[in-house]
Design a protein around this nucleic acid. Structure first.
Length: 986
DNA sequence: GAGCACTGC
């Protein structure tokens, strides 16, 4: 037994499949065997060429029953002539043979090709035609976004002229996969879940990870897992191919990572069919006012340059709306009937200045060629002599001429109508859709966007990009988890991605509002997401795959150790991981802490597709019929931006009034949904429950949402998530018999109290306590709360319904730091619940002697009253009934109650009083000492433990009597849903 | 007394 544990800890693998000997063995040999198929070509920059045939292995040839260079099977595809023609224009088609040879001969291949290369649509078709999906095996492609998975499956089905039954998709809430499916597009999270059901992914012959350069957390984990799965599949003689597709050449994290791929996988580069984009840097970089600079640049472009849409990149909603307002004011356009006419005739557009000016031929600068470093240093100086303000790299178009200093007066010019549209993720979909329609006749389209336009949404017909060079990003404090949003410079890769948005339909221009020197100081790539955020959700998923030593997992880029430790600590506190034994040295303890195995509760939690804190809430909600409510609350907490945002600057007086009215309405509804008295104590979570309940009752219509300031999209997502969570709970607990009830009744007062306890159990590390009057030394702590991990005061967010209530103890969903630290999603809790529900966060004192310890017939354990203090802050918590602490005294009490007959119905003549058992060792009589020693040696300090000892060694019974043992009372099992939850309500 | 970019199960 010990040997085995030892072996496990020592082995370098981390994807332990210990139930399957074969797999385990194979994992350990991964490094030596599985990746040695073929010597690997290290051509990162240049395409492979076909006469550089890669060496192949007999094993693989046998596996596919064909020589390596030529597929033995060819599955015909009946494409339409138009599709054929369009396909042939894609550069990737010329590389088909090269790509397929590399795939045939290597288990892992990387394909680099920028947007427009056609890799996402074509590579699956290559594989299909080469027979990779011909016999009992399918081709899986992961996308980081749902829309992409759906639209790509549609497009490929159309190109191949094949039914959706064969080319299908699967995303979180829907899919059209059938038994006939051969090509399956899915989101990366879907595949990760599938690995939990079938670690070897046996139904797939090929997995393609698309958009790997985006480095989404699931993509990263998938690549780590697949780096082990692929060789394992070789071991079981069912080889699988892994293809990693990236839009950038930054693949060193995959290629130069020996832990991930011991042999360097070949990387093939394919060209993209993009139009050239000329990049213009500003001579000077504005200190702060990039918004004003954006405005001026758009004005110049609009006044002087030929037709073509403008896309502006800014950092947030407020900026987007404010620029929209300024631009609309400067270039108003009157809506008329022609607006409805969809066909916009380029020739009829009037561009005052640009018509007078000679349009210069656009310079041919390939976006690729400068993407690493700006090539303009020389030009910059040359341009500087002629132009103080701006260096137009490689371009003769001078925006400075004809500038009439518009920014001062911002006088409006209605002869040059500009059709200005905002675009950001939280914008209602129908408003987002506007940017894809042609602008009204005689106007120019100008989209003012956040980062959504960089990856998620592609607007055609953009010719000019204005890039402020900034992004707004979320930052997490690794220790406290407090998050904040900061605006920083973007990365070179992302600036290039933005520039590329100007070359989708014709050659374009990108205006960067910063100098090339500033650009070259940008980091090359943004750090992968997994290094920047808490990882407890990922860690629990990995633990559920029996990956215990997460620290050894072959992450393409590992999360910081602090983040791993924080995740492990939280999961232990939630009971999802088995706590390491407290014996041993500190160092060993530290190491053990990073390799805790998952607990049964953890397995249940991992099956719920929500954050571990919320999964814990679900796992505790069976009692008192709380599940439907807990599911609803958890769904609402998971879906972001529940309420519509009305804080933006209004365009008109009329809008100002409208926004004001809506804001007032939301505030009013919040108060109504929060309820009164005991209901209100559930706080913001009660608002969520009330809002979802009311919305569903009304049929979840856009109208209801609009009228009540709810985001329709969010409400639909909550509805779907409730459905998914209901199914998930039913499957771990079939007798729950849950269903989603659109006419769900409000919870009772008692249920609300239980819900508060459930919420506390999940948010144990998010408890805060109001500063008491006597502690108030500094004004800055007025109305403030203290938390265990933060030195600074935190406050209830003004939007919270508890903002004015200021309950003594609260839990919060998250803390966001802006001007101060604000708690959001706040519920009030009672301090006496804390020691009962959150023992890991409490330091308990000695058991009270009054009331005395007692035997609990339900659990078969010794119970007692213990006072405690909350961790790190030392808040005194009321004494509560808990299990008697481990140790000799527990044995003594157990012996005492045993002798008293508390465990069973037998009565014996005892020579001593059971009370003797509580005396110190020295005062014990020999016969009682024997009993105590026996109990200790058998670790029998509870009924279950004693029964186990008797089962193992029936002789033990003699120690107590000669008679029948105690009869076990009730089920001893402590199933996760059965556990005696909760403090008495009220 | 406020101001959050973007995504996946």
């Amino acid at each position: 037994m010990e040997l085995e544990t030892e072996k496990k800890t020592e082995s370098s693998d981390s994807s332990g499949e210990d139930e399957e000997e074969e797999h385990k063995e194979a994992i350990e040999k991964t490094a030596t065997d599985s990746f040695n198929f073929g010597k690997v070509e290290e051509c990162i920059k240049k395409p492979l060429n076909s006469d550089q045939a890669l060496p192949s292995t007999p094993a693989l040839q046998k596996a596919f029953n064909k020589p390596s260079s030529k597929p033995a099977v060819f599955i015909p595809v009946d494409r339409s002539p138009e599709i054929q023609e369009a396909r042939l224009k894609l550069p990737i088609l010329a590389e088909e043979q090269v790509i397929m040879e590399a795939i045939n001969e290597n288990p892992v291949v990387i394909i680099c090709g920028e947007t427009g290369s056609g890799k996402t649509t074509q590579v699956p078709q290559f594989l299909y035609e080469a027979g990779y999906a011909s016999s009992n095996g399918i081709i899986g492609i992961t996308e980081p976004r749902r829309v992409a998975a759906v639209s790509m499956s549609h497009r490929v089905a159309k190109e191949m002229n094949i039914s959706h039954r064969v080319v299908s998709y699967q995303i979180r809430y829907e899919g059209n996969v059938t038994d006939e499916t051969k090509i399956k597009f899915m989101t990366d999270g879907v595949l990760l879940k599938e690995i939990q059901k079938d670690f070897l992914l046996l139904k797939y012959k090929v997995i393609i990870i698309d958009e790997a350069h985006e480095r989404s957390v699931y993509t990263d984990i998938l690549i780590g897992l697949l780096s082990r799965i692929v060789p394992l599949r070789g071991k079981v003689r069912k080889p699988m191919k892994l293809i990693i597709m990236s839009a950038t050449l930054r693949v060193e994290d995959f290629t130069d990572n020996k832990k991930l791929f011991p042999a360097v996988p070949p990387a093939i580069q394919v060209d993209a069919r993009q139009f050239p984009v000329t990049v213009h840097f500003n001579k000077r970089t504005p200190a702060d006012d990039y918004n004003g600079e954006c405005f001026r640049k758009v004005c110049k472009i609009h006044r002087m340059l030929p037709a073509g849409g403008i896309l502006v990149f800014l950092t947030g909603q407020a900026e987007v709306h404010s620029l929209c307002r300024r631009l609309r004011k400067a270039f108003p356009f009157r809506k008329n009937k022609t607006e409805e006419k969809e066909e916009s005739v380029e020739e009829t557009r009037k561009f005052k200045k640009s018509k007078q000016r000679k349009t210069m031929p656009l310079p041919k600068i390939d976006l690729n060629s400068y993407s690493v470093l700006p090539v303009d240093e020389g030009d910059e100086d040359r341009e500087a002599e002629m132009d103080e303000d701006e260096d137009a790299v490689g371009s003769d178009i001078d925006l400075e001429l004809g500038d009439d200093g518009l920014e001062e007066g911002e006088k409006s010019d209605s002869s040059l109508p500009l059709y200005v549209l905002p675009l950001y993720s939280l914008l209602a979909p129908e408003k987002q859709a506007k940017v894809f329609r042609p602008p009204p006749l005689g106007t120019r389209l100008c989209v003012v966007a956040t980062n959504v336009a960089e990856t998620s949404l592609t607007i055609p017909s953009i010719k000019y990009v204005v890039d402020c060079g900034k992004v707004k990003k979320r930052f997490y404090d690794k220790v406290t988890g407090v998050s904040s949003f900061r605006v920083t410079w973007t990365s070179q890769a992302s600036a290039n991605q933005r520039a590329g948005r100007a070359g989708r339909t014709e050659p374009g221009h990108c205006y960067r509002l910063y100098s090339s020197a500033v650009f070259s100081d940008f980091e090359k790539f943004s750090p992968p997401e997994i290094t920047r955020r808490p990882v407890e959700d990922l860690i629990i998923q990995m633990k559920a795959l029996n990956i215990e030593k997460v620290i050894n997992f072959p992450f393409p880029t590992p999360p910081p150790t602090e983040a791993l430790a924080a995740a492990e600590e939280l999961l232990i506190a939630l009971g999802a991981l088995k706590e390491p034994l407290k014996t041993g040295r500190l160092k060993e303890l530290q190491r053990a802490k990073l390799s805790c195995p998952i607990s049964p509760l953890g397995m249940t939690m991992a099956s719920f597709p929500v954050a571990p804190r919320y999964a814990k809430m679900l796992a505790l909600s069976k009692q008192h019929d709380c599940l439907p409510y807990a599911i609803t609350i958890v769904s609402a907490m998971t879906v972001r931006e529940f309420f519509e945002e009305f804080e933006r600057p209004a365009v008109s007086e009329e809008e100002t009034e409208k926004l004001k009215g809506k804001k007032a309405r939301v505030t009013q509804m919040r108060r109504i949904w929060a309820g009164q008295g005991p209901f209100q104590k559930l706080g913001d979570l009660m608002v969520m429950l009330g809002a979802v309940g009311a919305c569903e009752y009304a049929g979840c219509t856009p109208k209801f949402c609009e009228a009540n300031g709810l985001r329709y999209k969010a409400m639909v997502e909550i509805r779907r998530l409730r459905g998914q969570l209901t199914t998930a709970v039913n499957s771990v607990c079939p007798d729950a018999g849950l269903f989603v009830d659109p006419k769900m009744k409000p919870p009772t007062e008692t249920q609300v109290t239980y819900l508060r306890q459930i919420v506390l159990a999940g948010l144990g590390d998010h408890v805060a306590r109001r500063i008491q009057a006597e502690e108030l030394l500094d004004e800055k702590w007025k109305y403030a709360y203290k938390t265990p991990l933060l030195d600074d005061p935190v406050f209830i967010h003004p939007n919270s319904v508890l903002f004015k209530q200021l309950p003594e103890f609260v839990v919060y969903q998250e803390i966001v730091e802006t001007t101060q630290m604000y708690m959001k999603g706040v519920s009030a809790i009672e301090s006496e619940w804390i020691p009962v529900l959150l023992p890991p966060y409490c330091h308990f004192g000695k058991p009270l002697e009054n009331p005395p310890p007692f035997y609990c017939p339900e659990t078969g354990r010794i119970r007692c009253q213990r006072p405690s203090v909350f961790y790190r802050v030392g808040w005194q918590l009321p004494a509560v009934e808990v299990d008697y602490p481990e140790g000799i005294d527990r044995y003594k009490y157990f012996a005492k109650f045993l002798l008293e007959g508390k465990l069973g119905s037998y009565k014996r003549c005892l020579l001593s009083s059971p009370l003797t058992m509580l005396k110190t060792w020295s005062k014990l009589q020999p016969r009682t000492e024997i009993l105590l020693k026996a109990l200790v040696s058998e670790s029998a300090d509870s009924r279950d433990a004693l029964l186990a000892a008797w089962k193992k060694n029936p002789k033990c019974k003699c120690l107590v009597s000669g008679g029948a043992g105690p009869t076990p009372a009730g089920p001893g099992s402590a199933g996760w849903l059965a556990r005696g939850l909760m403090v008495k309500a009220g």
